[in-house]
Nucleic acid binder design. Sequence first.
DNA 1: CTGAAAGCGCTTACAG
DNA 2: CTGAAAGCGCTTACAG
Lengths: 340, 340
Amino acid sequence: MAAVTSLDVARLAQVSQSAVSRAFTPGASVSEVTRAKVEDAARKLGYRPNAIARSLITRRSRMIAVVMSYLDNQFYPVVLEKISQRLQRDGYHVLLFIADTREVDSVLSEILQYQVDGLVLASTALSSALALRCSDAGIPVVLFNRTIRDNHTCSSVTSDNYEGGRLVARHLVDTGHERIAYIAGMEDSSTNLDRERGFRDSLAEHGRRCFARAVGNYDFEQAKAAARHMFAGPAPQRPDAVFVANDHMAIAVMDALRMELGLRIPLDVSVVGFDNVRQAAWGSYQLTSVEQDADAMIEATARMLLDQIDGAVQSSAVVLPARLVVRGSTLRRNSLKESA
Amino acid sequence: MAAVTSLDVARLAQVSQSAVSRAFTPGASVSEVTRAKVEDAARKLGYRPNAIARSLITRRSRMIAVVMSYLDNQFYPVVLEKISQRLQRDGYHVLLFIADTREVDSVLSEILQYQVDGLVLASTALSSALALRCSDAGIPVVLFNRTIRDNHTCSSVTSDNYEGGRLVARHLVDTGHERIAYIAGMEDSSTNLDRERGFRDSLAEHGRRCFARAVGNYDFEQAKAAARHMFAGPAPQRPDAVFVANDHMAIAVMDALRMELGLRIPLDVSVVGFDNVRQAAWGSYQLTSVEQDADAMIEATARMLLDQIDGAVQSSAVVLPARLVVRGSTLRRNSLKESA
DNA sequence: CTGAAAGCGCTTACAG
DNA sequence: CTGAAAGCGCTTACAG
């Protein structure tokens, strides 16, 4: 309650207020005697430096704004947890913003007012204006799991989404699938564009085309609806494999296929997702998925952000390798035929 | 970059710095003419008040520390998302702390330094010292989904965990289960204690006892291990129903029972969880669960916290009703017998 | 190593 | 309604 200040400590320790400040500043020049007196007095009074006052004078808040749009997709909570721990390790703190597309302006304004030292934008959905305007205001920005077209000011960290899409196509072709479909995320998000392009390019190289396509907008219910529609027809008219743009939707698709349409996975249809979230490994799903290495992505994000805060001018785009994790949701249809 | 201040705006607008400040303070007395001049100049310069400086003088940071220990259990990310949005609505911001049991001291210190206006402690695992010491320092604290024994300073918001436990016992007895087991969360957490007590009390009232008990510590893998051990024996020696202290563990238990032990749910064994997280409704699980009304819990949390920040001295304990959501993971064994 | 002093960018009595 | 001034709690040249 009492709000103990450095002046209170100074008085008790019989030193100047500057001395108290120095005693709490790593690397400042204080004699051992002074330091001891200060620490003693501080302990007695329960003093802790006021980070707000410090921020005002140092122009460093040691706060990083992390902007996400929804934590439904399990990929994001895990990222949030890890990034928060990673930044805490370096003495930074996460100021969290959950932002809808509609609220970009007010969030932008709040971020700017709070003098954050950096910004991590981890939301596929959100307008790029937010990132660009923070960057213009001199705040280091890292785009996490997304990019912005024609951007030279914001750094970004992504997996190789294009290559991930290719891996999926190749896997499905190699395992003998004939009618390979795609369920998209948000159509103009960078993740969706890259994954879909890689997927289509690889299909084309194998002399194949995408058999059917629907849009799920990275939403659980929309993905179910897309699946219902896509698989409405009889066997020869429906896909025998579907690549869903992320695991969150892929699980919804699996539920719809099994529970509503009575299809067997992978016997009637193979399903592949993207992200390799924890649930993909759950017993009932065993979802084949492209793994994003969250730890590596977070480490790269933290490093770039901290470097830029410490004055590195260069912004850059880090692309980390993606790898396919094959599980029970995809079948080898060719070996099936052989044995038939 | 340029860090536009109120003084810059004042100069351009030809008014005093105080006038600029007033123009940005809702309810302050400024003439329309002055306000217009200020807004004009501010827009031209891209001025935004510095929240840090404001905090220093008003002694209100408008930041709320939210402390969680892991976001693995889907209940928590959803809570975090909603509480963040709820607080943003009132102009508050979430400073997020992910804390392990080990890091309590450093987290405490950081929270205190950042002059947060309030604290939400939403972690079953974390030591109560954190909450009590913040409370001692004059920071309003709300315990979310947990309580602290013999506590008169921190408010708390929980569901009626005791009644929830009772509902589960009654349901399992009513539906004709004979050997009803329990898999505990962290044994000394308030949620676990209350749920287990309610469960046991109700069993006792029906003249029954808990058939078997194991501990999962709210951990996915530990829950699996507990299930493996509990269900190792042949049919008459193993439970025909198990209440698992939360959904996160219950799903792990279902996976272990089905995939590793080859048991059918609910035919061989019924499973009940707690929280009613989204995954409980997923097609492959259809988990019967006790619903915690997250929206009501969050609303109560925000309201209590804001009231206390605004000077309400009273701390209080809100307990919200819990209700059982019956799904396919529990069977009516009695009707089964009748029809047999 | 140490202290006095200026100043970070605001809000808010105070006097007019 | 308006401006000059004090002050929130720190850090950091500056001089000794």
